[in-house]
């Protein structure tokens, strides 16, 4: 009986040792690749779905996650090339940013160029009235020619 108990204890002890040998540890790393996504009024796209596509593979994401409360999503690439990060807020707003990774140097491949809002509004309103004015003029001109 004592021998049996000793045997079970020895087995348990060995398994415990084996289990202990599978402990985990963390090492701090610096650097990484990421984007901050905001709406056009500057408010962050928080807690939205983010997908990372590795260079040369736009079909299947290698990493999925969510942006943080500040609209930031970061990861650490393991190969050089153009990485693509897509953020989708689930309500029809999505953006894809391509970033070239060369070692620890990040070069934005494309940045959306937007006109300053004030100029955009003035230009847009002017164009709207211009388009409809031209359409009305053409319509009258055609009806005159026909008539």
């Amino acid at each position: 009986m004592i021998r049996r108990i000793a045997y079970i204890f020895a087995c348990w002890f060995c398994f415990t040792l084996v289990g202990l040998s599978h402990g985990i540890k963390a090492t701090r790393v610096d650097g990484g690749l990421g984007i901050v996504v905001v709406y056009d009024d500057g408010s962050p796209v928080s807690f939205s779905e983010a997908k990372v596509f590795a260079p040369g593979n736009d079909e299947k994401p290698v990493l999925t996650g969510n942006t943080d409360r500040n609209g930031c999503f970061m990861f650490r690439p393991d190969t050089n090339g153009i990485w693509k990060i897509t953020v989708d807020d689930g309500m029809g707003h999505a953006v894809t940013e391509a970033i070239q990774f060369k070692g620890m140097v990040f070069v934005p491949v494309q940045t959306a160029s937007t006109m300053p809002r004030r100029y955009g509004v003035i230009t847009g309103i002017a164009l709207i009235f211009g388009i409809f004015g031209s359409a009305a003029f053409l319509s009258q001109f055609i009806s005159k020619v026909k008539g």
């Binding site: 009024d41 408010s43 309500m91 847009g124 309103i125 009235f129 388009i131 009305a136 009258q140």
Partner: peptide, 29 residues
């Protein structure tokens, strides 16, 4: 009709500008 063109243009401009007025709401906008 041609007479309705200014009204159409005006409401198009109103829609164009109104869509630029954002209201932050929860995690979205």
């Amino acid at each position: 009709p041609v007479e309705a063109t200014p009204k159409t243009a005006m409401l198009s401009a109103v829609f164009f500008v109104a869509s630029l007025i954002h209201i932050p709401f929860g995690p979205s906008n």
